[in-house]
Amino acid sequence: MTAPTSNGSLISDLPVLTRKDFVSDQEVRWCPGCGDYSILAQMQKMLPSLKIPRENLVFISGIGCSSRFPYYVESYGFHSIHGRALTIASGLKSARPELTVFVVTGDGDGLSIGGNHLLHAMRRNVDLNVILFNNRIYGLTKGQFSPTSEFGKVTKSSPYGTTEQPLNPIRIALAAGATFVARSIDRDTKHLEETLYQAAQHKGISFVEVYQNCNIFNDGAFAAFAEKEVRQDRMLYLEHGKPLRFGKNMEHGIRLNGFTPEVVLNAESDDGLLIHDIYNPTPALANILVGMDYPEFPVPAGIFRSVTAPTFDELLQKQVDDAVAKGAGKFEDVLYSGETWTVS
């Protein structure tokens, strides 16, 4: 007697789906004007292009405004507890590798209370799609500073200003060995939809930081560089194989001076400009880009890194498959292992 190794038989045929198919019957309860609406809309727009049956999609979240997300997507959804979405997702994906699993988290949920799990899901390379909504504030608990809030920020829990430095989520992801690392922004809907699509296409863990405006407790956190009028001058859209350029007419560039990036204003030629390479096996370039921030630099958005590596869930499944191929376990053999004797 043996146990089955997967529930593959449950998977049904591919349907043709549209955005509407992913809109659940639940009333969306984010504050009017919240950046979360845009992320939900781009996700629902993007999902049909994955051509995955709805029942094979699972959205798992922790706690926070962003974590209400699963209620609004018509798929399987699990709104769990604070910081632990990745643990549940890792277990689900490891048990059922045939499912497509999204994890929706925030800067508090994913980097503070759940920070440990983020590191380990990334180093294991579990094939999950992690979307971290970064609004640099605790919204659901009504306005305390978060691990990504800027130094000195005055909030309800820091009336004298914070005395701690923020984390950079992308830097954490790169350090933990995430195989797909990207950043997008709620206001740039096209870029966001494309980034979510690329993340979903990636095999292995994909980590997308989305700059998301909280118009109630931290309004305009990204306005200085993300507003439509200034975006081209103050953000750097990363494109694989192309020189790093920005500006209304893409007139400026980025080059390296030693290990330090520097802006080349009105760079006429591409010579000497950094060429973006998301497939580079070493994250050296990505690590340089991640340090660039406004106002010294344009803020990079897009894919920092996309490399291929075996995933935790497939390796685990392979161990099972290989072991079973060598000889499925017989329960009697295990019962009788070691020295036995018969009493008659």
Binding site: T2, A3, T5, T87, S90, G91, A95, N116, H120, D322
Partner: peptide, 30 residues
Amino acid sequence: KLRNFGVKTMQAEDEIAAIGAAIGAAYGGH
């Protein structure tokens, strides 16, 4: 040791992750 029975084991990063993963598997029907 029991991969040949389809048993998957995961040494989690902490106690919470361990139960979270087990909940994930239970949610998945295992």
